[in-house]
Amino acid sequence: MDYYIEQLHSGLLVFKINRAEKRNAVNFKVMEGLQEAIERAKAEDIRALVITGEGEQAFCSGGDLSVFHELRTEEEAYGMLSKMGEILYSLAVLPKPTIALINGTAVGGGCEIATACDFRIAKIGAKLGFIQGSLAITTGWGGGTLLFERINAPHALKLLAEAAVYRAEQLDHIGLINQVVDQANYEEAERFLEKELSIHSGVLSAYKQIQIRKWEESRLRERIMQEVRQCAVLWAKDDHHQAVDLFLNKKQ
């Protein structure tokens, strides 16, 4: 199974990517699982949704290039990118608190998933980076658009444009990481949301709706889809395919 969905007694619903051998890279099955978790998290007895990865090495290393590198044209890329863009939009506007429990490396699309969550708890030393630029593309799942919503514009532009990797403890002061912990486990997520978990889920949803209404007014979904289309254009170019070929050859 490429993912697990588990409901804890505390009211947390956990979605875990279970592809440790692939550094928890996203494939189409993981996409479907995340979509299922988001729908299940809407149930009244769920207080919050937690997203994490299996093992201690990676939260999520982004899209599985061994699968997605077969997408060559703009329209082929757009099909995959828009599917995940819609899922991350659904995650962002889920009327429940959401936490990315970053247990290890979160790069590329892994950072986009984390940014779609309301809060990010990261294990000390975990590496994070929007490295898409090094593959001659932009963020393509909506993570760039969402990053500008989460932190101030100069920090967001710097993180995106330089395509560099940081340690978690270097990112808490700009608001991208909300808490750095020794071990990114379920207990830390429950501790972080300790007070919220005692509040009626209807209250939590009502507060989240305030943010959602703001995003609807600013056409967040439309802006995410514009980001997706822009990435699809770059995806189809030779520069991207050559960069991925070099990256995959280095790993062999």
Rank of each mutant, 00 (worst) to 15 (best):
N185M: 11
R150H: 02
A153K: 12
E169W: 11
I151N: 02
N178V: 07
A184G: 11
Q179H: 11
A156W: 09
N185Y: 07
A153L: 08
H173T: 11
Q179V: 03
H173I: 03
N152Y: 11
N185W: 12
L160I: 15
A161V: 01
L176R: 08
I174Q: 06
E149L: 01
V181F: 11
I174P: 10
R167C: 07
H173M: 09
R167T: 14
Y166I: 09
P154T: 08
A184V: 13
A163M: 03
A168V: 08
R150Q: 05
L157S: 15
V180P: 05
A156V: 14
R150F: 01
A156E: 07
Q170V: 02
G175Q: 09
E149D: 00
N185P: 06
A161M: 04
L176F: 12
Q183K: 13
R150M: 00
A164T: 05
I177P: 03
Q179S: 09
H155M: 11
N152D: 13
Q179K: 15
H173S: 13
P154F: 04
E162M: 08
A153M: 06
D182Y: 13
E149F: 00
L160V: 04
G175R: 09
L157Y: 08
E169S: 09
L159M: 12
L157E: 15
V181T: 07
A156F: 07
H155L: 14
E169M: 10
N185E: 15
D172E: 14
L176Y: 12
L159W: 05
K158T: 11
P154I: 08
A163F: 06
Q179A: 12
I177R: 04
G175F: 09
A161P: 00
A184W: 11
Q183A: 13
Q170S: 12
L176D: 02
A161Y: 02
Q179M: 10
E162S: 07
D172Q: 15
P154G: 00
D182H: 13
D172T: 14
A168H: 03
L171W: 11
I177Y: 01
R150V: 04
I151P: 01
N185V: 06
R167H: 15
Q179Y: 03
H173F: 11
I151T: 03
V180Q: 05
Y166F: 15
L160C: 03
Y166P: 02
V181N: 10
R167E: 15
I177E: 04
A156G: 03
A153N: 08
I151H: 01
L171D: 05
A153V: 08
G175A: 08
K158Q: 10
P154N: 10
R167D: 11
L171P: 09
L159Q: 05
A164V: 01
L171I: 05
I151E: 07
E162A: 00
A184M: 12
P154W: 09
A161Q: 04
A156T: 15
E162I: 09
A156C: 02
R150T: 05
V165I: 15
I174W: 04
E162W: 01
Q170N: 13
L159S: 04
L159G: 02
Q183W: 14
H155Q: 13
E162G: 00
Y166G: 06
L159Y: 01
L159N: 01
E169H: 12
H155V: 07
V180H: 08
N185C: 14
A163P: 03
L160N: 01
D172C: 12
G175K: 06
I151A: 00
A161D: 02
G175N: 03
